[in-house]
């Protein structure tokens, strides 16, 4: 994908974001109580209009960019593997957060590492995976629970039954 072609999407997306933001600001944030002060809505509204303007600039510049300049600015193509890794990392982070509260640190941490190593980083040996999972869990427990005395989640299985 080319830079200018990306901007043709980015500009309208930014404008859409700005319009949504402005709608949210006008709908959910109360205005000023008197004419002599800037209320809690003033700044969000100002930001919305600035973003709208920037979105318009990006859009207009993308359509007006000279053809020669466009060719110079190529973006690397989005690959299936990249999409898989980005979505996988995000999914694993969410899953880790979900399990942390329910299954606790001791179970969710090694599980998360095993899933990362086996699903995202394919081709990792089981021995290395197990060693990294055990070592990282132990080091993190020592660091957070013992050294920093920070409470790590113990989990609760109530959600499974009730």
């Amino acid at each position: 994908m080319q830079f200018d072609r990306l901007d043709r999407w980015l500009g309208p997306c930014l404008m859409l974001l700005a319009v949504t933001w402005l709608w949210l600001a006008y709908t959910y944030i109360p205005g000023a109580r008197s004419e002599t002060e800037a209320g809690p809505r003033a700044f969000p509204v100002l930001l919305g209009f600035v973003l709208l303007g920037l979105g318009a600039i990006v859009t207009v510049s993308a359509f007006l960019a000279p053809r020669e300049a466009r060719a110079e600015k190529k973006l690397p193509a989005v690959m299936r593997r990249e999409v898989f890794i980005v979505a996988g990392t995000f999914g694993l982070l969410m899953l880790y957060g979900f399990l942390l509260e329910r299954a606790g640190f001791v179970i969710s941490t090694p599980l998360m590492i095993v899933l990362t190593m086996r699903v995202l980083l394919r081709g990792m040996s089981w021995i290395l995976t197990a060693a990294l999972a055990a070592g990282t869990t132990l080091c993190c427990w020592l660091l957070f629970a013992v050294l920093l005395e920070a409470p790590l989640p113990r989990g609760s299985w109530r959600w499974l039954f009730f």
Binding site: Y96, G97, F98, L148, A150, P151, L152, P153
Partner: peptide
């Protein structure tokens, strides 16, 4: 892999809240 674990535990430790882990993600 180690950094991602630190990211999650570091975010959680701020307010002992899983919400912060989701927000960090």
């Amino acid at each position: 892999v180690c950094i991602i674990v630190l990211c999650v535990l570091g975010s959680y430790a701020i307010r002992n809240s899983v919400f912060d882990v989701y927000l960090m993600g």
